[in-house]
Simulated assay, not measured.
Amino acid sequence: MAVISLVVSMAALAAAGISLVYQARQTRFIREEIMRSSHRELLGMTINDPTLRASWGGRCGRTG
């Protein structure tokens, strides 16, 4: 009986460990996607706003 209990406990512990690894991986992917999204939004703002376009430097910031 103790052996069965030990096997079940080990399986539950392994499942919890696998779950934590998977959750950490998903969190990392979500964090990267949020960063990409904010970069995309900032890029769109600088392209569409002439006053922010100057932050690109060079001829991009000049009007006229």
Rank of each mutant, 00 (worst) to 15 (best):
I4G: 06
R40N: 11
P50V: 02
I4R: 12
L13I: 01
F29I: 04
V3G: 05
G61N: 01
R59F: 07
G44W: 10
V3W: 04
S19W: 13
Q26E: 13
M10I: 00
I47M: 08
Y22R: 07
I47V: 08
Y22C: 04
R40V: 01
A2W: 07
A14R: 03
S38H: 12
A54P: 06
Y22P: 00
V8E: 09
L13A: 10
S37E: 07
R53L: 14
R59T: 13
S38T: 12
T46A: 15
S9C: 03
E33W: 12
A15M: 02
L6E: 15
L20V: 02
I18F: 07
L42S: 12
A24S: 15
R25A: 12
R31W: 06
S55E: 09
P50L: 06
S5F: 10
M45T: 03
L43V: 00
E32V: 04
E33K: 06
R25I: 05
A15G: 04
L6T: 13
R53I: 04
N48M: 14
R28I: 02
I47F: 10
R28V: 03
W56S: 09
I34F: 07
G58A: 01
L43I: 02
L20E: 06
L42D: 13
R25E: 11
I30Y: 11
L13K: 09
G17M: 08
S55C: 14
G17E: 07
E33R: 13
A54Y: 03
T63D: 10
Q23K: 11
S37I: 02
R31Y: 06
R25C: 01
L52Y: 06
V21Q: 01
L20T: 00
G58M: 01
I47N: 09
A15K: 02
R62K: 14
A12Q: 09
L42N: 14
A15C: 04
L6W: 05
T63Q: 15
A11G: 09
E41P: 00
